[in-house]
Design a binder for these strands. Structure first.
Lengths: 138, 138
DNA sequence: CGGTATCCTCCTCGATACTG
DNA sequence: CAGTATCGAGGAGGATACCG
């Protein structure tokens, strides 16, 4: 922000290799991150974290430009991992509520550092990109 | 610097919506995360964070099962974003060194929270998956 | 309303071959 | 050693139509 030193003490200072000790664990962790770091997952996570319980189409509208297929798929995957809970109210017309579990909420908190990093360093990245493009042409 | 960042210092523990205030910023941040949360990017980031300066084939060997194409592409993308620096030593045979920039190092630190989350909650996720599969069958 | 099923289109990614 | 160029398979993801 005002001074340098962006976000050093948000979490553990260095975090050299959290799960790198066990290659099997690392592979699993990597797989988890791969699924969790999905565009739609992140967006849905955000919306649910902000608004609490939401209905299917409500999430679709909030996220904006997501197809029904991707919305269903992403919600299922999140449910499968235990990030969201799905509650069906047996009425007509159907009514299905989605909400973050504790696990989902904690994931949102974990991603906070990355969000802040991206927000803080957005201009730096754009500048780097411009520099790279310029150097590329020469 | 930042266009109208009113120093929102009320980013308390939970980090509800870091950049959600400005949709344009959020879109850019999302794009950044999308690129940064790539499987190979994460792995290369890890290796470079642990070992420091490395050469092209050295990174390839360390990461393990990455094709030359993906290694080149990912390193270029990371360089483009200013995450790594690329130094060519004009000798025969060619010698190219890669190292994390300050930005790259800070990204590694930011991702620390997610790594820890994934490592800590690995078993919980696997349990949730098992539960989901079981419920699916009924 | 909240899905599932089908088709179709990019676009990523790997394998292979070649080069300075 | 450190790439670039080309091809081809496969999966991600959108559009559309239909169902409980």
């Amino acid at each position: 922000m005002s001074t340098g030193a962006p976000s050093e003490s948000l979490f553990a200072p260095t975090c050299d290799h959290p799960a790198a000790e066990d290659p099997a664990v690392e592979a699993l962790v990597r797989a988890i991150i791969g699924q969790v770091a999905d565009k739609w997952t992140l967006l849905i996570l955000e919306e649910l974290a902000e608004r609490g319980t939401m209905r299917f189409t409500e999430i679709g509208r909030a996220v904006g430009d997501i197809s029904q297929k991707m919305l269903t798929k992403t919600l299922r995957d999140m449910e499968r991992m235990g990030l969201v809970s799905r509650t069906v109210h047996p009425v007509v017309p159907p009514h299905v509520d989605y909400a973050l579990t504790d696990l989902g909420t904690s994931l949102g908190a974990a991603f906070c550092g990355v969000w802040l990093w991206a927000a803080e360093n957005r201009e730096r990245i754009e500048a780097a990109r411009a520099t790279f493009e310029a150097r590329e042409k020469r």
